[in-house]
Design a protein around this nucleic acid. Structure first.
Lengths: 223, 223
DNA sequence: AATGGCACTTAACCTAGATTAAGAAAATTA
DNA sequence: TAATTTTCTTAATCTAGGTTAAGTGCCATT
């Protein structure tokens, strides 16, 4: 999981009141949640009760940059939806080299799909790159929701289809494009991310060493 | 689409009667169809009526090797399930180089997922590598089935999840493994395929030139 | 303000795999 | 059966990107 639909809802969050009253807090919660609900409603429509039910099965957590949400060898228990901040999933091969599978910023889902569906230990790490607010949906709750609200089964089918299409395209790109062209595609896929994460992460995503990426970048600037 | 679940049902087909009577023909049809039904029932159980409904929405077609089922620029109208034979999906980049996205043999699904879900022109070709018998499921019928038999929505969700996991693994492999190691993984993913398709197709799948593949192979044999 | 740890750069050298070309073997087709 | 097209092999040469190493700048702690 981790896919390609971002939306414009964040604007809402900017209106956050600073008040501490119980009521303000509750409104705040609603606004936070509307990002994920809106994300879902891009594909399926939910009734008020269904939204309520869905939200009751999720929880919000805050994580500091550098937190590790999942390590290689662990079983992935949750799908994570990003309200704010940036995460990445990556693996580490024998040579102690990291490879980024996906980034996730506002409005994206992330998780270790293999471990999530098999409930076996995976080989991915999930790390927070920038302080993040996440919506957690446990594997069990997700399964319950599939039968309680069949529309959600549709939603996640569509989500997964989109993720697959994006992945296939990236795979073909890796087979046929140069590092420079892949960097170009990265910029389009994750607009604005270049300013927010260390460039060694981008190098790892497009599949080159930080040294080569640096060389390539300065060549691009000289143009 | 095109994913990683194969099953052992082909055995059934070997019992095919050669008789031409109406009855034998009907039994034959049932056996053909039981491959796809069995494939579905690995993940969800269907009633007799549901199976009937599902089958009524599919059609069987036979294609000769070298047939092109889909070309770049066309809109993909069907998901294809392989009863027998071998297909591949691939794209062609500027340099007129082909890259294989997927192979599909008995018990696998194949299609251009991007074009299928967006109903826009895709950039994949789908070609028959070995005379094939396919079950065709049109996009419209597939959508109807989702609402008529919600269990099928679950089936295709699971199918897509598995395809995504396989794709992610291949992507990471391409980033971190040598051509030799990727060839090794190919052999495991598509056992028996090495004998059935030209090796330039395998080279294209693992992402090397036919020349390099040949060199690599003779090096492996010398060991 | 000093220390250590990252992230980034530069540069010399190295290698997996690409390219080009030409011939041999195998498979299609006539 | 021969003719033609494809596939496969071998070999020389080339290059995108890797490796190693050393140095710079930038924070975060103390």
């Amino acid at each position: 999981m981790s896919f390609s639909i971002v939306d414009e809802l964040f604007e809402l969050r900017k209106e956050q009141t600073k008040q501490n009253s119980y009521i303000a807090e509750s409104i705040f919660q609603k606004r936070i949640m509307s990002l994920i609900i809106n994300n879902i409603e891009k594909h399926v429509q939910l009734t008020a009760e269904e939204k309520q039910l869905f939200l009751s099965k999720t929880e919000i957590q805050h994580y500091k940059a550098k937190s590790i949400l999942l390590s290689s060898g662990e079983i992935c228990k949750h799908s994570y939806f990003v309200n704010s901040g940036i995460l990445r999933s990556f693996n580490i091969n024998d040579n102690i080299v990291e490879h980024v599978l996906n980034f996730a910023c506002e409005g994206w889902w992330i998780g270790d799909m293999y471990s999530l569906i098999s409930q076996k230990p995976g080989n991915l790490f999930i790390e927070v790159l920038e302080d993040a607010e996440l919506v957690l949906l446990s594997k069990e709750n997700q399964n319950q929701l599939y039968t309680e609200i069949p529309k959600l089964e549709r939603f996640f089918r569509i989500l997964t289809e989109n993720a697959l299409v994006a992945n296939q395209e990236r795979l073909m790109d890796n087979l046929s494009l140069s590092a420079e062209e892949r960097f170009d595609k990265f910029c389009k896929r994750y607009p604005g991310l270049i300013q927010r994460i260390p460039q060694k992460q981008i190098a790892s995503y497009i599949g080159v060493t930080p040294e080569f990426f640096s060389k390539m970048k300065s060549k691009l600037l000289r143009k």
